[in-house]
């Protein structure tokens, strides 16, 4: 009897778990005191996009989001504690969907920008939704939502471009299969 083969190989699971842990480490290690909403997205979208871009399987982003969400929630690194889990999970799922739509061509800077920006914006939307569930008046959220959307897009997008450049370099070096960057 042959053992049942899992969806992810052991190597892929190790890589995705490392990426999930890296999201958590980047969140706590790199503190930039500029107090601009969404600025941390420039760092933590990188491991998510790298993991999805290397493994190229649907669900890899969700797995990274799950691992990072569990770590951030249980270490209580953010204000929403266990509800942070939903932010990271939704961000991972979003990047999964974006990667699937673009046939995993995440080594293109424009696709990287879209994946990072949309992932960061979805995280913001889930954050606002959780805050509204907690009873924060919608007025306070809506008054800053335009500006917050722009900053989340810019910082997430920049992180996505950086991840795409790293993926393209890895592809050119023959470390991962080439998708053809722009």
């Amino acid at each position: 009897m042959t053992p049942r083969k899992g969806y992810f190989s052991l190597y892929e699971l190790a890589l995705l778990s490392t990426c999930g842990a890296l999201v958590f480490v980047l969140k706590i290690a790199l503190k930039v005191p500029i107090h601009v909403p969404g600025h941390s997205g420039i760092f933590w979208v990188i491991p998510v996009i790298l993991g999805v871009g290397i493994v190229k399987k649907f669900g890899s982003g969700t797995y990274i989001g799950f691992i990072s969400g569990i770590l951030v929630s249980f270490f209580g690194m953010s204000g929403l504690y266990m509800f942070d889990f939903f932010e990271y999970l939704s961000m991972g799922m979003t990047i999964d969907i974006i990667a699937f739509i673009f046939a995993y061509a995440l080594d293109r800077p424009s696709v990287g920008f879209i994946a990072g920006a949309v992932g960061n914006i979805v995280k913001m939307v889930v954050n606002f939704a959780v805050q509204m569930v907690f009873g924060i008046p919608a007025t306070f959220i809506l008054i800053g939502i335009g500006l917050a959307s722009v900053t989340h897009l810019v910082f997430g997008g920049l992180g996505g471009i950086f991840a795409a450049l790293v993926l393209a370099r890895l592809a050119r070096a023959g470390v991962i299969p080439d998708h053809g960057g722009e």
Binding site: I98, F102, S110, I114, V118, L142, G144, G146, S149, L153
Partner: peptide, 25 residues
């Protein structure tokens, strides 16, 4: 196909941003 999707995605993102800015205003 990818280039077409990129163009569509950028339009969707721009529309979303415009919507959020209008909502804020």
């Amino acid at each position: 196909d990818i280039r077409r999707k990129i163009r569509i995605s950028f339009w969707i993102i721009l529309l979303f941003l415009a919507g959020m800015i209008v909502l804020q205003i």
